[in-house]
Simulated scan of single mutants.
Amino acid sequence: MEYIIVTAVFFVLLMVYFRIATKYNIIDHPNHRTSHSDITVRGGGIIFPIAYLLFIGTEMFFNSDGLYGAEDQPNFFVFGAGFLLITILSFVDDLVDLPTKTRLIFHFIAVTLLLHFVNGFTILPIWELPFVYILAIGILNAYNFMDGINGISGVYSLVILGSLWYVNQEIAPFILKDFIVYPTLACIVFLFFNFRKRAKCFLGDVGSMGIAFWIIALIAMLIIKTGDFKWLLFLSLYGIDTVITIVERIKRRENILEAHRRHLYQLFVNEQKQSHLTVSLLYGLFQLLINIFVILSGLNTWFIFAMILIPTAILYIFLKLNILKKSLIKQS
């Protein structure tokens, strides 16, 4: 019953936000660098800060032991400080384009709070911390780069959260169940409005940064609990697409921070004229297959990384080159 009520609250509050966003012109206008052609409400990802506040409120009133009394649970208020910092900053960035330097400073502060949340400063040797900061901030921005067509980040996040829920329930309990369930319900409600041919709303930076931050925290907790970093592969498809596209753009001497249309999913939509929803489902399905292999495989972690990353990267490059080749033939 609790989850039904929470889901209903998400629906109501998101529809209230739509009215506010329409009134104050918080909308996304299509341009030559985007993959949509309709004016759409921006910032639908505000549902994730709402999910956090509802989670905290529910735990405080109905399960306070989960917040204060359980020694094996982290401090969710520390997570909330970092999470709300990055989502508020990102919402402001949706409204006014903030300087890159400002964003990076706040990302650094938020990741610092995240590391405190997962007890990273105690567990990790000091020489590893710079690499963790780079990885975490990189994942945050990769999630933002990849959110470019209807449904893609919602479906992808739902696959990751579902995988984490299964691991938490059946393999290695590492966090309060509701800390996974609440963002999952938020994802489902968001997809109701976004997974459409003509989306009613987009995530915006507030959503892509918010859900990425939440997922990073969950994966970090799982890695610490199990002592196995193979769970990073839950993000492998987004990672491969982002890294290869950045390398490609650097070779072309392009500004990697500027919007573009060179991700594989964008080429499928813009060059191959594939449906947004089909491409989003394919990305989600491919990542789901990877996650199932990661969960069920008892192989050495490095071997799992090689088995997943190398073939996926080769397939990615092959598909991309093939689409680009066909595009050049059409233009000639």
Rank of each mutant, 00 (worst) to 15 (best):
residue 61 F to C: 04
residue 90 S to Y: 11
residue 71 E to T: 10
residue 89 L to G: 05
residue 81 A to D: 00
residue 56 I to T: 13
residue 70 A to E: 14
residue 93 D to I: 11
residue 75 N to C: 04
residue 63 N to D: 14
residue 86 I to G: 06
residue 47 I to P: 02
residue 49 P to N: 12
residue 76 F to T: 01
residue 86 I to V: 15
residue 78 V to D: 04
residue 49 P to A: 14
residue 53 L to D: 07
residue 73 Q to F: 09
residue 55 F to M: 07
residue 81 A to V: 15
residue 60 M to E: 05
residue 85 L to P: 07
residue 83 F to E: 06
residue 88 I to P: 05
residue 82 G to T: 07
residue 79 F to A: 04
residue 81 A to R: 03
residue 66 G to D: 08
residue 70 A to K: 14
residue 77 F to W: 13
residue 55 F to S: 08
residue 47 I to K: 02
residue 66 G to H: 12
residue 77 F to Q: 02
residue 80 G to H: 12
residue 53 L to M: 15
residue 89 L to V: 15
residue 72 D to L: 03
residue 53 L to G: 11
residue 92 V to N: 04
residue 49 P to E: 13
residue 54 L to Y: 10
residue 86 I to H: 06
residue 83 F to H: 06
residue 50 I to C: 11
residue 68 Y to E: 03
residue 68 Y to P: 00
residue 95 L to M: 15
residue 88 I to C: 13
residue 96 V to G: 07
residue 91 F to C: 11
residue 77 F to D: 04
residue 55 F to H: 10
residue 87 T to F: 08
residue 82 G to L: 09
residue 59 E to Q: 15
residue 95 L to Y: 13
residue 61 F to P: 00
residue 78 V to C: 06
residue 61 F to I: 01
residue 75 N to D: 15
residue 49 P to M: 12
residue 67 L to G: 04
residue 57 G to V: 04
residue 86 I to T: 11
residue 84 L to R: 07
residue 56 I to V: 15
residue 96 V to E: 09
residue 93 D to L: 08
residue 73 Q to G: 00
residue 48 F to P: 05
residue 89 L to T: 10
residue 47 I to E: 14
residue 64 S to Q: 04
residue 53 L to W: 09
residue 93 D to C: 12
residue 90 S to M: 12
residue 53 L to K: 10
residue 82 G to M: 07
residue 66 G to K: 08
residue 84 L to K: 07
residue 64 S to I: 09
residue 82 G to D: 08
residue 49 P to V: 05
residue 96 V to N: 08
residue 74 P to I: 03
residue 51 A to R: 01
residue 57 G to D: 00
residue 94 D to K: 00
residue 53 L to E: 09
residue 85 L to T: 14
residue 83 F to D: 03
residue 49 P to T: 10
residue 86 I to D: 05
residue 79 F to W: 07
residue 61 F to V: 01
residue 56 I to K: 02
residue 74 P to Y: 03
residue 92 V to F: 10
residue 61 F to L: 12
residue 72 D to F: 01
residue 74 P to R: 08
residue 62 F to P: 00
residue 86 I to N: 09
residue 95 L to G: 03
residue 66 G to N: 15
residue 73 Q to R: 14
residue 67 L to T: 02
residue 80 G to F: 13
residue 51 A to H: 11
